[in-house]
Write a protein that binds this DNA or RNA. Structure first.
Lengths: 128, 128
DNA sequence: CTTTCTGCAAACTCTTTGCACTCGT
DNA sequence: ACGAGTGCAAAGAGTTTGCAGAAAG
């Protein structure tokens, strides 16, 4: 099954890449509607799945809330501020994990990983 | 608000601890129903929230599917086999993260973290 | 022209909540 | 007794899907 370059698919990818943030499907839907007001949520979800399958976007879920998408597809971690909700990208994957060593020596094959840190960002931490 | 030790609360905690696995609310509901057939899903969800607030259980979400609960509350990571779906606990948190250092020196306060690895477990990896 | 994709709406999964009643303390 | 907890059922959030028509290659 060949993936067709429809306007909708292109627009969804642009919307994810438009800002270096972590939009939900709903937020992406709202962005795309500025260009294609008739697009449906279903199309947004279907195209996000395709793009994720092609590794053009990544997704992750926090402790609660919807799936979040990321146009930055390299292997990086996230920090979530529990007060203001901001999500910060951490450059560079957590490659020095003790867990990593543990898994490899036990015969596990790691294909991908996601780490999320929760706490207070510098601004919110300073407010106490 | 004082937390009361109801039969339901006790039974939900026992159900999470019954096996060293990672049951969903639905699986916990089914376990508890063996003892208390009249318990409702709503009560299971409410008690799981209370127990998580008291740090008697932990929860996490994978790439998809419902929230999973864990009676092992120390800080540990998980490995998910993408073929058989098994979830393995990794002993010891990933404390040597480069990300950890990065965050601390930038003024972030880390309160908790979760890391999940996806790949193939030894059994499934050997089948190729 | 054929096949994939779209918009729509309904369905689905998981979780939360309002209410009247019950039970722990 | 009184307030926290319960069962029920309805509602809510987020996502998926069947279908008939549209459009990409």
């Amino acid at each position: 099954m060949i993936v067709r370059r429809t306007r909708q698919l292109v627009a969804v990818l642009s919307a994810v890449r438009a800002e270096r943030d972590h939009p939900s499907a709903q937020a992406i839907y709202e962005r795309v509607r500025r260009d294609i007001p008739t697009i449906s949520r279903g199309t947004v979800y279907r195209n996000l799945s395709k793009l994720e399958g092609e590794r053009q976007v990544r997704s992750f879920r926090l402790a609660d809330g919807p799936v979040l998408y990321d146009g930055v597809v390299n292997n990086h971690d996230h920090f979530v501020c529990e007060r203001c909700g901001s999500i910060t990208d951490l450059e560079g994957a957590s490659a020095t994990h003790e867990s990593h060593r543990q898994l490899s020596s036990a015969g596990y094959l790691i294909e991908r990983q996601t780490a999320t840190y929760y706490g207070l960002c510098p601004d919110c931490g300073a407010q106490d």
